[in-house]
């Protein structure tokens, strides 16, 4: 008998394509969240595969905190042009200016939490009934229980104790007026799967994922990038280091990794050898053990 076998990356790919197509078939106004990070880059790549040779049947949505790495924004604009996608930008700065969100104060101030307000406002403004996101279940404990199709009430909130059962590959996207869904097509991927797939498919990545020189400072064991809106304590010194991003959030909460990895192969070797989870360098999760669960209930990604 012939060998009818898919390797794990092709099986994950096929599952994700199936989920993305299911969204396009079941919903009227889908949108795909795009942060410029590796997970959403892979998700957009999968979406292109799902509908080829047609263009994406939905727009991309970027929630812009105003604190992005310039490299991320450049990459975003190039990608959108290359694949002919429609891009919508939701601005956290606008939410703050309108008094919809209140800027945090102090040294650890971040706009990460404020994104939720902008996201929900943008969803409502454009009447999107589903938003696809690049979250993975292996990232964090609360995400381990997230469904592919995650139902949100009219306030955009997630009720972890009252989730719809999800069996086989049958996805129930039915909802009442005013409710919407979050869908996570790459739920079953790990960080390693994502990088191996990027290598397999030769997907172009933003330059900040590769090694580069950057002005940084050390806070509680994490290297953070120097930027005009970052307040340094007296004890914190600016240093020039050879770093790369392992994960990309906005600048205020993205810890940089000291690294000389200059190719996808080197990045994969580095990840195989690391002993800290990628979210270990994310400030937003360190606030409390249930930080992610709390933010998700409010309507975070």
């Amino acid at each position: 008998m012939e060998n009818y076998r898919l390797n794990h990356l092709r099986e994950l790919e096929s599952e994700s394509i199936y989920v993305i197509r299911e969204v396009a078939a079941q919903f009227e106004r889908p949108v795909m969240l795009f942060s410029g990070g590796k997970d959403s880059i892979v998700m957009v790549h999968l979406a292109r595969k799902a509908f080829a040779p047609a263009k994406l049947p939905f727009p991309l949505l970027h929630i812009d905190t105003g604190h992005n790495f310039q490299e991320t924004l450049d990459y975003r604009d190039d990608l959108v042009k290359k694949i002919g996608a429609q891009l919508i930008v939701g601005s956290v700065q606008e939410s703050i200016d309108q008094g919809r969100a209140v800027e945090e104060k102090g040294y650890n101030a971040s706009r990460n939490v404020l994104q939720t307000v902008t996201l929900l406002d943008t969803i409502e403004k454009h009447k999107f009934d589903v938003a696809m996101g690049g979250a993975r279940r292996d990232e964090e404990k609360a995400r381990a229980k997230e469904r592919f199709f995650s139902h949100r009430d009219e306030f955009g909130q997630w009720d972890p104790k009252n989730q719809r059962p999800e069996l086989w590959n049958i996805f129930n996207g039915r909802k009442n007026m005013g409710e919407h869904f979050r869908v996570f097509p790459i739920s079953n991927w790990t960080e390693m799967d994502v990088w191996q797939y990027i290598l397999l498919e030769q997907i172009e990545m933003p330059s900040i994922y590769y090694t580069h020189q950057r002005e940084v400072f050390c806070r509680d064991g994490n290297w953070l990038a120097v930027a005009p809106f970052m307040k340094l304590k007296d004890s914190e010194k600016v240093e020039l280091k050879t770093v790369r991003c392992r994960t990309i959030g906005d600048i205020t909460c993205t810890g940089l990794t000291l690294s000389t990895a200059n190719s996808l192969e080197e990045i994969i070797d580095e990840i195989a050898a690391t002993r800290v989870t990628e979210r270990g360098s994310r400030w937003d999760d360190k606030r409390s053990d249930a930080a992610m669960e709390d933010r998700k209930k409010e309507g975070y990604f």
């Binding site: 381990a144 229980k145 790990t190």
Partner: peptide, 21 residues
């Protein structure tokens, strides 16, 4: 045991997905 209520009660409520290789 990922959800706050599970850690409090020491029980597993829902299906949780784990990954290793």
């Amino acid at each position: 045991d990922g959800l706050r209520s599970e850690r409090e009660q020491g029980i597993t409520i829902d299906v949780a997905y784990r990954y290793f290789a």
